[in-house]
Design a protein around this nucleic acid. Sequence first.
DNA 1: ATATAATGATATATTTATCTATCATTTATT
DNA 2: AATAAATGATAGATAAATATATCATTATAT
Lengths: 192, 192
Amino acid sequence: MFMKPSVKDNKRKAILDAATELMVLKPTATLQEIADHAHIGIATLHRYFSTRELLLDALALNAIGLVDEALTGILNDDSDMLRFLTEVFEVLIPLGSKMSFLSFAASVEENPDILAEEARVKQPLREAVEGWQTRGLLNAAMPAHWMITVMYNLLFVAWQEIQNGNLAKNDAPQLLVSTVIQGFGAPGRSGS
Amino acid sequence: MFMKPSVKDNKRKAILDAATELMVLKPTATLQEIADHAHIGIATLHRYFSTRELLLDALALNAIGLVDEALTGILNDDSDMLRFLTEVFEVLIPLGSKMSFLSFAASVEENPDILAEEARVKQPLREAVEGWQTRGLLNAAMPAHWMITVMYNLLFVAWQEIQNGNLAKNDAPQLLVSTVIQGFGAPGRSGS
DNA sequence: ATATAATGATATATTTATCTATCATTTATT
DNA sequence: AATAAATGATAGATAAATATATCATTATAT
C-alpha cells in the first residue's frame, strides 16, 4: 500500500541528491565534503547512512529509482518515435547527474542487485528501439545496444553542458533528438 | 632538440598508461592498487611520482600529450570530411581511457596549465568542424561546441564498449562516423 | 665479471578518513 | 508552553592511505 513520504524520507532524498551532485563532480569526495555540500552535519549524515558504502549503494538505487519513475510516467505509446524520444529526453535530462550512474556504474559496480535494477530500467527503451528498427524508422544495421548506450551517455553530456552554461535547458531535448536521429550532417545531404 | 626517450621515460609512460586504465575504471583507486595494476612495487611508484597529486597531474598531461601527438600526425587535409573524421576516430579510439580526461577533467581539474593544454588540443577539431559548417557539410544550426563535446564523449563510449566486448575494434571508427554524421535514423529517411 | 643503478619487499611514521559517542541547541509535535 | 525528536559541533577511537626509509635482490651497463 501507498505510504506518504515522511519528513525523514524527504530529507533522505535531499541528502542523496546533494551527494549525487557532488560525487559526479568529484568521485573521491569525503563524507565531510558530502555533508558540507548537503548543508548538514557529518553526524546527521551518519545517522542516515551508517557507512560510506551504504551511502554509495543508496545513491545508485536512488538514481535508478528516479529514472524508472520518470520513464514509467511516459512509456505508453511509442508509435510516434520523435515525440516519444523528445519526452524521454525531457524527463531524463533534468536527472542528468543521476544518469551518470546508469552510464558508468556497469563497469564499476559489483553489487548484483544494482546491476539487475539498472538493466531492468533500461529495458523499455531497448524494446522501443528494437521496434523502431523493425519498422524501418531506425537504422537496423546499427546495434541497438550501441544506440541505447549512446543515448544514455548523451543525456549525461547534455546535462553537463547545461550545468556549464553552454546549453539552454529548453533547447536540450530537441538538440538531443536531432543529434541522435539525424546526426551532425547538414539536413538533406546524403552521407555517401 | 630531440632526445631519444630513455628506459626510464618508457617505464614512466608504462606506469602512466596502467594508472590511467585503472583510474578511469576506479577513480578512488589507492596508490597500492595502482602499483599492483602496473606490476611494480609501491616504492618504485613513489620514485617516479613522489605524491598522488603529482601522479594525477601527470596522468592528465600524458593523456593530452598523446591526443595531441595522434592528431598532429593526421591533421593536414580536411577537404574530405568523412575520410578525415574516420582517421581521427581511428587514432583516438585506442586512446579511449585517455579521452576520459579530455571529456571530464574540465569539471574537476583546477590546474590552469592542464585546462589550457586541453583547450589547445581540442582547437584543431573545432576549426575543422566550423569549416565544414561553413561549407554546408555539417548542420550550421547546431552549435560547434556541442558537436565537439559529443564527439569526444563518444570516443570514450566507443572505447568502453570495445573494452566490455560489445563492439569490435575494427567496427568502431565507421560506427562512430555513421553515428555522428547520420545519427540513428534509417538511411534515406527524412526526420520530419 | 664487476660496478652501478633500479627494483621490490618490508617497516615505520605521518597524515587523512571513517566511525562512534556525547551533549547542548534547535526544530517539530502535541 | 511542555515534551520529544532531530540536529550540529565536537571529541576520540579505529582504520586506511600516503609518504619515507632501509636493505637485500635483480637487472643493466661497461
